[in-house]
Every structure is written in C-alpha cells, then in structure tokens.
C-alpha cells in the first residue's frame, strides 16, 4: 500500500508476527530513501521500532498518536 510515495505497513491488530517484524520484512524490499509508516495498535511498538531503527542505522522520523493506534515513521537510509 502506498500514499504519496510513503509506504504504509498496516500492522494494526497484529500480535504475531507483530509490527516490528512487518517493518523488517517490508524494509528489505523497498528502495533506499523510502519513507515507511507503520500503523500499530500495540503501544510497545512505539518503543521497539525506534530501538531497532537506531541499531540498524535507518532514520527515525517520529511517532504520531492517532485514535486507537500509533503511526511510527521511518526512512530507509542504506
């Protein structure tokens, strides 16, 4: 799914494999520079995803709280 060149990973309601695993799966298949928004109903992902992004070296663009879910924004940098 993509909107204005942003790739959306809709991981709402995902207990297994979960939002971070969905992001890891997706990030491998998009070009460097792509912005990915992960939609998650799991509050823990708002912490887990930035931690992984930092470890791998991608760019964390922030987290936005919506009604009942979070949008974690990432840019693939390598």
């Amino acid at each position: 799914m993509s909107e204005n060149n942003v790739v959306i990973v809709d991981a709402r309601g995902s207990f297994c494999p979960g939002p971070l695993m969905e992001l890891i799966s997706k990030i491998k298949s998009v070009p460097v520079g792509t912005e990915i928004h992960v939609l998650s109903t799991d509050k823990g992902s708002a912490k887990d995803i930035p931690a992984w992004i930092k470890k791998v070296g991608h760019e964390y663009l922030g987290t936005e709280e919506k009604e009942g879910y979070w949008v974690v924004k990432v840019r693939k940098t390598k």
Binding site: C16, P17, G18, M21, I24, G44, W52
Partner: peptide, 10 residues
Amino acid sequence: YPIGRVHALE
C-alpha cells in the same frame, strides 16, 4: 531472532 525478544508473541 529478528526483533527485541525471542518470539513475536510477547
């Protein structure tokens, strides 16, 4: 394991 714990299900 790819994420921050040993299985996807907490």
